[in-house]
Design a protein around this nucleic acid. Structure first.
Length: 429
RNA sequence: GGAGGGAUGCCGGAGCGGUCGAACGGAGCGGUCUUGAAAACCGUCGCGGUGAAAGCCGCCGGGGGUUCGAAUCCCUCUCCCUCCGCCA
């Protein structure tokens, strides 16, 4: 949340920051309401001061009591007006986006993003690499038809080696994060409205989330429960930076993306993700973003995947982000880069909404800065992995770091996992 | 689901209609002492708004009400705890 004081002191910068992101900030409306509210506040406070002065100590004089009684009615009325104004301002403030850091390139859409670096080598192929869908067909990893039967489109069922590969990836990612100093949390997948507001998924993006009858929301990312972990708390300066990792499913309506990636494993209503979250001192949050990004990257390089790092431009970085990198892994079968991670720093934007502060050695309480990044989104990582490490016979070599987790060094036709016994219902081979 | 109890500053914990922004303890900060540290002692110490400052205003879980006056009384919401029931 952008504090009202900042909107007063630099309204044009805030408005421009919004425009750069392709959004409209209700800055003028806020300023107008604020002007009215300030006048009302002065009036109320003066009346209050008067009231306090008179009623200091016990009041016995009936004349005074009569006067106070009259004042009370006036104050109550004015105060009601003031409260209404303040509430409107608060509500509008929630719709003001976080202006990007000055170092972020201004751009309208993904064409404005900058490739910061390219890492690893695309693996050379002596044959035409297949897509993960073809590989999955051969190896019996996915079952989209039955997923649709049960849950509709954009859901996936993993089968055989599929779920095992997912578990291996998740374990690897979590262990990686722990090595990098992140304390693991296992969180609820349903959260309250306040938590969604804290990370700025609400109020503006309510349509993107699944909501229950009890006004709980299925988390769109572990960012929500983990960032809100320290909600309304005052941390000590020595605790910073705090780093947490969580593996959760993520639920997204993705209403805006209709018609894009409608089939397969790339865009799902539910997918697994390992998320890194950092709570840091405001003085070094930009350095912390580099650190966080490198932690996410270490998973990709560990898996031997070719990837690129993009600095997102203003128009493609989102409502709350201050600066953001995307990590995209190369999928040789599909011949495209897949977004497997977004690493962002939010400044104090989320901390203000969630009330996460710390006590500096001297001076007033300050808001922490928050960061988060996927490390990584599991399905797309799996796609890049399968497509990268496939062999000509459609088997897949398991990257060395995953072998201890998976227990085999390749996924193939010889060791494919099938049902057996009565009522045998084999996956496609 | 049923019956009770509770929510106070960074933390613990008093307060139960007026001088309470809140006793007391701990933590923190400043100091005395010490070669240094610990202990002990002294002092300081809630958050936010507004203001150059003095000050003024608000805040005792959220919202509403009673009253000249509410942390204290009433209503309501949220959360936590205890007991019973149900349940993986």
């Amino acid at each position: 949340m952008i504090p009202l004081s900042r909107i007063r002191s630099e309204p044009e910068a805030v408005a421009q920051g919004a425009r750069d992101k392709g959004e409209a900030a209700p800055v003028d409306m806020i300023l107008a309401l604020d002007e009215t509210a300030r006048q009302a506040r002065t009036e109320v406070e003066q009346l209050r001061a008067e009231q306090n002065r008179i009623s200091k100590g016990k009041v016995a004089d009936p004349e005074q009591i009569g006067k106070l009684r009259a004042m009370k009615a006036t104050i109550q009325e004015k105060e009601r007006e003031l409260n209404a104004l303040e509430q409107q301002i608060e509500e509008l403030l929630l719709y003001v986006p976080n202006p990007a850091h000055p170092g972020v390139p201004v751009g309208a859409d993904e064409t404005g993003n900058q490739v910061v670096r390219l890492e690893g080598e695309p693996r050379p192929f002596s044959f035409q690499p297949r897509t993960h869908l073809e590989l999955g067909e051969t190896l019996g990893l996915f079952d989209f038809a039955r997923a649709a039967k049960i849950s509709g489109s954009r859901f996936a069922i993993l089968a055989g080696w599929g779920p095992r590969l997912q578990r291996a990836l998740v374990s690897y990612m979590l262990d990686r994060a722990r090595e990098n100093g992140y304390v693991e949390l296992a969180t609820p997948y349903l959260v309250r409205r306040e938590a969604m507001t804290g990370t700025a998924n609400l109020p503006k993006f309510e349509d993107d989330a699944f909501r229950t009858d009890d006004d709980l929301f299925l988390i769109p990312t572990a960012e929500v429960p983990v960032t809100n972990y320290y909600r309304e708390e005052i941390l000590s300066e020595e605790q910073l930076p705090l780093a947490h990792v969580a593996h959760t499913p993520c639920f997204r309506k993705e209403a805006g993306a209709a018609g894009k990636d409608t089939r397969g494993f790339i865009r799902l209503h539910q997918f697994d993700k390992v998320e890194l979250v950092r709570f840091v001192h405001p003085d070094n949050s930009l350095d912390e973003l580099e650190k966080l990004t490198s932690h996410a990257e270490s998973v990709l390089s560990g898996l031997g995947l070719h990837y690129r790092v993009l600095l997102m431009c203003t128009g493609d970085m989102g409502f709350a982000q201050w600066k953001k990198y995307d990590l995209e892994a190369w999928a040789p079968g599909m011949e495209r880069f897949l977004e497997v991670s977004s690493c962002s720093v939010f400044g104090d934007f989320q901390a203000r909404r969630a009330g996460i502060r710390f006590r500096p050695a001297s001076g007033k309480l300050q808001y922490v800065h928050t960061l988060n990044g996927s490390a990584l989104a599991v399905p797309r990582t799996m796609v890049a992995l399968l497509e990268t490490w496939q062999q000509e016979d459609s088997t897949v070599v398991v990257p060395e770091v995953l072998v201890p987790y998976l227990g085999v060094d390749h996924i193939g036709l010889d060791n494919v996992v099938v049902n057996s016994g009565i009522g045998d219902n084999q996956h496609p081979l």
